[in-house]
C-alpha cells in the first residue's frame, strides 16, 4: 500500500527533531568546525583545518584542574548543607514546609549577579569581618577573594538545585519505612544509614549533578567572590573569546568541556539508576 501521507509518528516527532537539530546538532557542528580552525590575525576565526587547538589544551590544564577541584568541593559542601535542611523540611517541618521551601526558593527570583555582588559587601572588610572585629572574635579576618568565598558563593547560589531533588526524594519516602526500621531494632542513626540515606540516594546524585555541571561552567563567582585570582573554565572561555579573541582555541576548550560534562552526566545518571535500585529490574528466582 503506497504511503500517501507521512505516518503520524513522523509528524508528531517533527518538532522535537527540529528542536534537536536547531539547538543541539547545529551549534555543536559549528563549534567543532571552528575548533579545528585557525585564529585570524586580528582575532576571530579564519577557517582552516588543524588539531593544534586540541593539542594546545594540554598546555592549559590549570583551569580544568582548578574547576574540578572547586566544583567537587563546592558540590560536596552544598550537599552537606542541603541534606539536613531538606531532611528537616521534608520530614520534620510539618505545616511550615511550604513556607520554608518558599524561603529557600524566593531569593532566587533575583538575578544571580546582584545576589552574588551583594556578598562582596558582606564579605568585604566593612561587612562580616567588621562585625567580628567589633565583637572581639577575630582581629583581621579576610574573607573576600578567598577560596572560602568561592565555596560560599557556590553553596549559596546552588543550594536550591541540590535541595529540591533531595527534598523530593525524602518527601516521597514512606514514613512507615523509617518506623519499620526502628520497630525492627534500628536506632536513629542506623535507620538513617540503612533506610533513609539509600532511598534518598537518587535525589542526592541528581542534586549533585544539577550543582556540579553548572558550577563547572561558573564564571561570576570566581570573578566576584574570588577576585579573579581563581580561574575557572568559564573564565578561560570568556577570556579566549573576548580578550584573546581566539575563537578556535575557545571552541576546542568548550568542546572538551562539553565532553567532560557529558561523561560526568552519563556516569552520574548510571549511578543514580543503580541507586534507585528500587527499580523494577531484578532476577527472577
Amino acid at each position: 500500500m503506497p504511503k500517501l501521507i507521512p505516518r503520524a509518528s513522523t509528524l508528531s516527532t517533527a518538532p522535537a527533531v527540529a528542536w534537536f537539530v536547531v539547538f543541539m546538532v547545529a551549534p555543536l557542528t559549528v563549534l567543532f568546525v571552528v575548533s579545528v580552525g585557525v585564529r585570524g590575525p586580528d582575532g576571530g576565526y579564519a577557517g582552516g583545518f588543524t588539531f593544534d587547538n586540541y593539542l594546545e589544551l594540554g598546555n592549559r590544564l590549570a583551569p580544568i584542574w582548578n574547576t574540578l577541584k572547586f566544583s567537587l568541593l563546592g558540590t560536596a559542601v552544598t550537599l552537606l548543607v542541603a541534606y539536613p535542611l531538606a531532611y528537616y523540611i521534608a520530614v520534620k517541618a510539618g505545616r511550615r514546609k511550604l513556607v520554608l521551601l518558599a524561603l529557600v526558593i524566593v531569593p532566587f527570583w533575583t538575578s544571580m549577579l546582584i545576589r552574588t555582588y551583594a556578598w562582596t559587601f558582606l564579605l568585604g572588610s566593612n561587612g562580616l569581618p567588621a562585625v567580628l572585629r567589633e565583637w572581639g572574635v577575630v582581629d583581621d579576618l579576610r574573607l573576600l577573594n578567598t577560596p572560602f568565598a568561592i565555596v560560599l558563593g557556590i553553596v549559596y547560589n546552588y543550594l536550591p538545585l541540590m535541595l529540591l531533588p533531595i527534598y523530593v526524594a525524602l518527601e516521597r519516602l514512606d514514613p512507615s519505612l523509617r518506623a519499620a526500621s526502628k520497630d525492627l531494632g534500628a536506632g536513629r542513626l542506623a535507620t538513617f544509614r540503612q533506610v533513609t540515606l539509600p532511598l534518598s540516594a537518587p535525589g542526592v546524585v541528581g542534586g549533585c549533578l544539577l550543582v556540579l555541571i553548572p558550577v563547572m561552567g561558573e564564571y561570576l563567582i570566581p570573578v566576584l567572590l574570588g577576585g579573579g585570582r581563581s580561574y575557572f573554565l568559564g573564565n578561560a572561555l570568556a577570556d579566549l573569546f573576548l580578550q584573546s579573541r581566539n575563537w578556535p582555541l575557545g571552541a576546542a576548550l568548550a568542546g572538551a568541556f562539553i565532553l567532560l560534562m557529558t561523561a560526568i552526566l552519563l556516569v552520574g545518571t548510571a549511578v543514580a539508576r543503580r541507586l534507585s535500585g528500587a527499580a523494577t529490574t531484578g532476577s527472577p528466582a
Binding site: G185, A186, V195, L199
Partner: peptide, 21 residues
C-alpha cells in the same frame, strides 16, 4: 524507644524496604 521494645509490628501497607530483597 521503639527499637528497644521486644514487640514487632506488621504495618498496614507492609512498609517493606524497596531497596532490599
Amino acid at each position: 524507644p521503639p527499637f528497644r521494645r521486644p514487640l514487632n509490628t506488621v504495618f498496614q501497607h507492609y512498609a517493606l524496604f524497596p531497596h532490599m530483597d
